[in-house]
């Protein structure tokens, strides 16, 4: 069973994603900012990280850098309410960039795709 880490500062949103991905059959851990995410990645092994950008304490960009400097192979999807920085984020070597939407089909599809590709 693939294990995901969802990094999102908004509690209700994070819980929504957790529920949705658990329903999809994934094991889901949650982090409420970049710092927590880095700590959790150090302690555990994840198949994929879904990372928000704008977060208190440590934002998604910094966390992305720290995680990648530790483990270059871990797939990370940027999942953000910013719709217009896609090309920038892609250069920061995230595996995918998905704009947040109330319809989770796109992010679910992306996660499936990446997990399938790795196994």
């Amino acid at each position: 069973m693939a294990r995901l880490l969802i990094v999102e500062d908004e509690k209700h949103q994070r819980e929504l994603y957790a529920m949705e991905f658990e329903d999809e059959g994934y094991e889901v851990d949650q982090a409420s900012n970049g710092k927590e995410a880095v700590d959790l990645v150090k302690a555990n092994k994840y198949d994929l990280v879904i990372m928000d950008i704008r977060m208190p304490e440590m934002d998604g960009i910094e966390a992305l850098g720290k995680i990648l400097s530790r483990d270059k192979k871990i797939p990370i999807i940027i999942y953000t309410a910013y719709s217009n920085y896609k090309s920038n984020f892609m250069t920061w070597t995230a595996d995918a960039y998905v704009t947040k939407s109330s319809n989770l089909d796109e992010i679910k599809g992306k996660v499936r795709e990446i997990i399938a590709a790795r196994s």
Partner: peptide, 25 residues
């Protein structure tokens, strides 16, 4: 306009995503 819009969009989209997500659930 782009900078303002990007910021506004971000601030608005987040609650929308939450609301819509739960409604969908």
């Amino acid at each position: 306009v782009g900078r303002i819009a990007a910021h506004m969009a971000h601030e608005i989209r987040n609650p929308l995503v939450t609301m819509g997500g739960y409604a969908r659930r």
